[in-house]
Design a protein around this nucleic acid. Structure first.
Lengths: 147, 147
DNA sequence: CTAGGTTAGTTTACATGTAAAGCAAAACAG
DNA sequence: CTGTTTTGCTTTACATGTAAACTAACCTAG
């Protein structure tokens, strides 16, 4: 009956994207009841621990460009999770701070540990360390290859 | 001078997303001269090796839902890289096939090996195997945690 | 002080992802 | 055969990512 199932080649990119994708799906699944997306949680987790911050700092923390961070802040501000205000010391800087409503979610501050635990289920301590080490080395190789 | 640099916690999700993000940036960088995005390359690489295929099969291969795959095919059809036609045997199915113009790019068929090589630079064979094994186990754990 | 360059942020245009609704064809139950 | 369900795909609405253009504020050289 020839079940047309093209076998994908053994590609690192494929495996990385699939693993990361599944993990992000799991994150979204856990955050959904709280009406938070993963990038929004990252922003909040940054603000919970380090006071008001410039948009640039948030962008670096989230790992995206300024425009993406700016718009994330937009939406979160619309939902009254954060506020914007000009930095009194530097008129260019927009300081983002968390509101009461945003702080009310700070019980999610260590939700990522729950994800770590789920993904690392059955892993030895040495294997967990290895995962971080290997991923970091690949990241550095990618950066190097980008020139 | 207090360089405000919030230290992110040691999060697997963070490391996975950053490593994968860097690698995808590298992929886009390599594909850019050929006017191909990474998902578009994945579709083509599937069509190059296995004849005309239904949209569903492409979606599974790319790792996204049907709507995303359908729209990818849209754009690639606009650029005359692929064609759509109804499956003569099943009127519901849209068969996607690569055009001459699309096939002209098939020298990129093993471009992912170049990415593998760049990311694995300095890795022993055992380490490369380990990366696949560990990533696969995490992926399975994520799927399991999703229920 | 002013001119030019840099920096921070926003806005716009566009590619991609998901979820949910809609549609047409096939499969199935009676 | 007919009515219902399932399946495959598309469409729409929306969140997110990037790149490039634009604005505003700061910095620096003169």
């Amino acid at each position: 009956m020839a079940t047309k199932k093209p076998e994908p080649p053994r590609s690192l990119g494929r495996q990385l994207n699939f693993t990361t994708g599944r993990m992000n799906a799991l994150c979204q699944h856990v955050l959904e009841p709280h009406d938070l997306s993963l990038p929004q949680w990252v922003i909040l987790s940054c603000l919970w621990r380090h006071g008001p911050l410039p948009v640039r700092t948030l962008a670096e923390f989230v790992g995206t460009g300024l425009p993406a961070a700016s718009r994330l802040v937009d939406r979160m501000a619309e939902r009254a999770l954060v506020t914007r205000r000009a930095d009194p010391g530097d008129g260019r800087v927009t300081l983002v701070d968390v509101t009461e409503k945003g702080r009310a979610l700070d019980h999610l501050a260590s939700f990522y540990e729950q994800i770590n635990a789920a993904l690392f289920d059955g892993f030895t301590d040495a294997e967990r360390e290895l995962v971080f080490t290997l991923l970091k080395r690949m990241e550095e190789n990618a950066v190097k290859a980008l020139g």
